[in-house]
Nucleic acid binder design. Structure first.
Lengths: 193, 193
DNA sequence: TCGCCTCCTCTACATCTGTAGTAGAACACT
DNA sequence: AGTGTTCTACTACAGATGTAGAGGAGGCGA
């Protein structure tokens, strides 16, 4: 049975890779089979409908991200703004380099979720996870209005990532570090209302 | 002849609507015909291949955005940060309400451009347009490093928009206005290096 | 060894899609 | 009016796709 789960994960991983490479249009059972190196019909057997395949893919995506988020949740109650900026820069850097594929798939699925409620609930959960984390971190860093600034920060970082991932702008760690530092500094020593 | 251009624009508009409603997967010649209220085969006649249809769609998108950008370029050399924030808030508000459809299509095409160089060049041009404008506006507002902060600001605003457009977060003008004000304030009175 | 059951692969099939050819309508010009 | 030309719409067709069922390989218990 553990093999079946592994097989399902492998298929979901192949779906992520296919999604990143060929987009939503290229995501077919047959393409996933090929990417996974499995016999034709395999993904169609494990996920009988395309909808089921998509749901498994978002869930896999959420699980992968969870592995990244979990270690961070247990941070100290107080945090220097510089350390927070460094942490965020690391996350962004990872996203636009090693995990580029995963995030491309996430953007594809985010758009698809516009039309599929079942995907939306999973993605909303994942988004909330990030936002709660950001609020906690900004609170620990002494932000002026973390409940608003947390979600904003997540959205801004995602925008910067999107730009680096789909745009031409090549990634520049120094500039990114400075930009993120500015964002966090604005939240921490922001103009109080 | 002017009719032919109008017809092409109408088809491209229908393609944008189709893209927003059904995604890249739902963008077929037949679906565009139906959305445009034209006879089957019309879009296939004007844009023989799907690639041609996609190219026309991004170009139409760029033209529509240009109508929005052009009036702003002739702004005064000096600008108060508050006025800039107000301007940007207006643009974002427009994007997430009336122009939601258009921006959904833009995100779809941005992802597709990952795989199609012909789309990429047009979208890159459009992105540059926005970035140059942002640099000019931030310069006029007295930002500390407009060449970096301009593109950053565009990316951040796009991230906020993406969140409002595909996410659950319902749009809140007051909060958005405050967030954008903070972003601009950070750029203007930012920590000098 | 035999029979059974689970898991997987292969195959079938109806439908959809991209693309291009063909025929007719509208129009301009003589 | 007649004729040629351009524009538009319909149709054809090969290939891809979603989905599901049939068949077999391989293990497990008796």
């Amino acid at each position: 049975m553990t093999t079946a789960i592994a097989r399902r994960d492998a298929i979901a991983d192949a779906a992520i890779a296919t999604l990143a490479r060929d987009g939503m249009r290229g995501l077919t059972h047959r393409a996933v089979d090929k990417t996974a190196g499995l016999a034709e019909g395999s993904s169609s057997y494990y996920f009988r409908t395309r909808q089921a395949l998509l749901e498994a893919t978002v869930q896999r995506l959420a699980a992968l991200d969870e592995d990244l988020i979990a270690p961070i949740t247990g941070l100290p109650a107080r945090l220097r703004a510089e350390d927070l900026a460094e942490l965020m820069t690391g996350i962004v850097e990872l996203a636009v380099t090693e995990q580029r594929e995963r995030h491309l798939a996430r953007y594809e699925l985010a758009l698809e979720a516009t039309r599929r409620p079942e995907l939306r609930t999973t993605l909303i959960g994942l988004g909330k996870r990030y936002r709660v984390l950001a609020v906690a971190l900004l609170t620990a860093a002494g932000a002026t209005d973390p409940d608003r600034q947390g979600p904003d920060l997540v959205a801004c970082l995602d925008g910067l990532m999107f730009d680096s991932i789909v745009g031409v702008r090549e990634y520049d760690r120094i500039a990114t570090r400075r930009s993120i530092g500015e964002l966090i500094a604005a939240a921490v020593s922001g103009t109080p209302d």
